[in-house]
Design a protein around this nucleic acid. Structure first.
Length: 472
RNA sequence: GCGGCUAUAGCUCAGUCGGUUAGAGCGCCUGACUGUGGAUUAGGAGGCCGUGGGUUCGAGCCCCACUAGCCGCCCCA
């Protein structure tokens, strides 16, 4: 049987056209993060397994790719290493490890692959890139606001217009559930069920809540709260339209209304009230950053990772069931490594999902698909190979912007032109016996089919002018 | 992890009721073409029909298992 040549399940090869797109998206995101004062970080693909275990919740633990011990221990099936599952935990480890050597506020971005032993699906792979930005060292909601602004800028620069950053808060969630009388150990169950409200409807959620052992009175109370949230949209529209001189967008009006509703429902639940207050400040600060219209407070947002302690956010677009990215505040994660409580908050954009949506909507710039070379230098026969190589080297030296390819075989000229044509190379250089004798080359413009004979010494300048219009 | 669909040439796909040498379009290669691509035209190569088993006189087609992919659920970036 021939060896399997497909990549391992859920993993992908990236051919040149794929990589052009990926590099473009990464470049835009990186430039955006840099403009907010974030610095780059890379960490190893592999972490000690105890670094990862117990950080992501039960589900996460099972999806970690583990690496068996090597050598004589291999038989035991015991793992001591694992592929990183996200970029947040490695950051927390780095912050714990380098402590005082890092700036007081450590703002870093990190764009690297992570691995999850998940089942592959649309926009979901076992190896995929995350584009993380995080700030360690402060509890200020300025961070949340700036992260939302940076993510907004990055997506806008890529051409997205219809995304929403859903915003919620772990303590607010807890407060709401407490207020409804859901026992602390049932919080997670309640959230899973409530998350499906827009999919399976009120009846379905009520059934699921009951099935998960939540008291009907509590369920009813929660449903009453969540069900009425959409109504706030209409109210918000009314308020926004009614402006009367004050500049209030629909999104802002909605957020204010939602905050008001949360205050009412949470009541005197202390941590819940504090959480609502934090949300209010995040929204205000985000407004100052110019990102307020993207943010929508969504009290039903939960997120799976267990390390979040405060604000949580997630980016949605209508095209995709999942999210384009997400993040939140994790004030205790660094402490799990060093014992020192260093607060942190971060955000992650999912490269693969962004690319899925951009590909489907045709959002990539056209020049990404341009040919790999600007000029193909053909070879006349075996004897003239050196001459063609030398001429190509001269072109590269005289016009560094020119991308020059040399045809490697002494094939018939027609075949060489056909190759240039199929590769989309715009210019071809032909050096036949006549041209060589006269110290000239023939310059063929593949688009027009036209051809001119020029002195070798002028070829670089003429090509530059034809391609870039600069008459240097 | 659960349910459904799919697997035939490099690509997209046809293949009748189970019947002999498995087809098309596109792509690729060669020629017509003299020192020149695209267009036209004449040829050509290329398939253990996903893998393994079973039913049958006979399997691309029917049955089972496995593998991989796609869609939904769950979960997630």
């Amino acid at each position: 049987m021939p060896a399997k040549t497909q990549p391992a399940r859920g993993m992908r090869d990236f051919l040149p056209a794929d990589l052009r797109k990926r590099e473009y998206v990464i470049r835009v995101i990186k430039e955006t993060y840099e403009r907010y004062g974030f610095e780059p970080l890379e960490t190893p693909a592999v972490e000690n397994i105890e670094t990862l275990l117990g950080k992501y919740g039960e589900e996460g633990n099972q999806l970690i790719f583990k690496i068996l011990k090597r050598g004589e221990h291999e038989r035991t099936g015991e793992a001591d290493l694992a592929l990183r599952y996200d970029l947040t935990v490695p950051l927390a480890r780095v912050v714990a490890e380098y402590g005082e050597r890092l700036p007081k506020f450590f703002k870093r971005y990190q764009i690297q692959p992570v691995w999850r032993a998940d089942r592959p699906a649309r926009g979901r792979f076992r190896e995929f890139y995350q584009c993380d930005v995080d700030v360690a060292g402060t509890r200020s909601p300025v961070v949340e606001a700036e992260l939302c602004a940076a993510a907004t800028d990055a997506l806008t620069a890529l051409g997205f217009t219809n995304f929403t950053i859903r915003l919620n808060h772990r303590q607010v969630l807890a407060g709401v559930l407490d207020a409804a009388g859901v026992a602390a150990d049932k919080h997670a169950d309640a959230l899973v069920a409530l998350d499906k409200l827009d999919k399976i409807g009120r009846e379905g959620v009520a059934r699921e809540l009951a099935g998960r052992g939540i008291r009907p009175e509590s369920g009813e109370e929660l449903l009453g709260f969540f069900e009425n949230l959409p109504a706030l949209e209409h109210a918000a529209e009314f308020v926004a339209g009614d402006g009367g001189g004050t500049e209030v967008s629909k999104a802002e009006a909605y957020n204010r209304a939602a905050l008001g509703r949360l205050v009412e429902f949470v009541g005197d639940n202390e941590s819940g009230a504090r959480g609502v207050d934090e949300l209010r400040r995040i929204v205000e600060y985000a407004a100052a950053c110019g990102a307020a219209d993207r943010i929508k407070i969504d009290p039903s947002l939960a997120r799976g990772l267990s390390y979040y302690t405060g604000a949580i956010m997630e980016i949605s677009v209508p095209d995709l069931a999942g999210s384009l990215g997400g993040g939140g505040r994790y004030d205790n994660l660094v402490g799990m490594f060093s014992g020192k409580d260093i607060p942190a908050c971060g955000f992650s954009l999912g490269l693969e999902r962004i690319i899925v949506v951009m590909t489907e909507r045709g959002m990539f710039p056209e020049n990404l698909e341009r040919a790999a070379a600007d000029v193909l230098v053909t070879v006349w026969d075996e004897e003239s190979v050196r001459d063609s190589l030398a001429f190509a080297a001269g072109l590269r030296r005289e016009a560094p912007a020119l991308r020059v390819d040399v045809y490697p075989d002494a094939d018939k000229l027609g075949k060489q032109l056909k190759y240039a044509s199929s590769r989309g190379v715009p210019f071809v250089v032909v050096i036949g016996e006549d041209e060589r004798a006269r110290g000239e080359v023939a310059l063929k413009d593949m688009a027009s089919g036209g051809q001119e004979t020029v002195a070798r010494a002028h070829a670089a300048a003429i090509l530059s002018e034809r391609l870039y219009g600069n008459k240097s």
